[in-house]
């Protein structure tokens, strides 16, 4: 793979929702070493906080990204980490704010945006310019779970996708 020299060059691909969130048919346990990333459009996803409160977000654009757990603390930003190739020992670190700014065309038309992203320093994120949809983000760790009725095909639309975190927030300034 050619060397990536700018944030805009980081590949962000649309993926099937279950694969994007790290689910593998037949596996029950979470994958705590999962490093896949990308985006998907969902019918809905439930955001569950530590009190058990559930907020359902309809028709979101889901961005699955990874924080660098030992990244520097910022009051309003998160260091992202990308592992681009399993055979490559290189990781790219970039600030979330700059990454979102580089994806404005993808984000601008979404009715809602959900960030599947750990926020270890509990930063209160800033809204990227030109994006006025509600943007949901977590405080603390984020883990995906999936409830599927017995016997149903293993497809996202047949079950219920959840993201569990300590708390969920929306970035102020949504126009809708």
């Amino acid at each position: 793979m050619a060397a990536i020299t700018s944030i805009a060059e980081i590949p962000l691909e649309e993926r099937e929702p279950l694969a994007l969130l790290g689910f593998v048919e037949g596996r029950v346990e979470p994958d705590l070493d999962y490093y896949g990333f990308g985006w998907a459009r969902l019918a809905a996803i439930d955001l569950v906080d530590r009190t058990g409160k559930i907020e359902r977000v309809e028709r979101p654009l889901l961005l699955a990204l990874h924080s660098a757990d030992d990244g520097d603390p910022y009051p309003d930003d998160v260091d992202l980490e990308f592992w681009l190739d399993d055979d490559d020992d290189t990781a790219i670190v970039a600030p979330l704010s700059a990454f979102l700014a580089s994806r404005r065309p993808l984000l601008a038309g979404a009715p809602a945006i959900v960030l599947a992203l750990c926020n270890p320093h509990r930063a209160r994120l800033r809204r990227p310019a030109g994006v006025d949809a509600p943007i949901y983000h977590a405080l603390g760790d984020v883990l995906a779970t999936f409830d599927l009725p017995e016997g149903s095909p293993y497809r996202a639309e047949r079950g219920r996708l959840r993201l569990e975190a300590d708390a969920w927030r929306t970035i102020p300034g949504a126009a809708r």
Binding site: F23, L65, A91, A94, A116, L117, C118
Partner: peptide, 24 residues
């Protein structure tokens, strides 16, 4: 209903990866 676990969205194990920081 069956519940299954997916991914976690932080990378904690640096392992041997060399980190390259991009700012723009």
């Amino acid at each position: 209903t069956r519940r299954s676990g997916g991914g976690r969205f932080g990378l904690g194990d640096r392992g041997k990866r060399q980190r390259v920081r991009l700012s723009a």
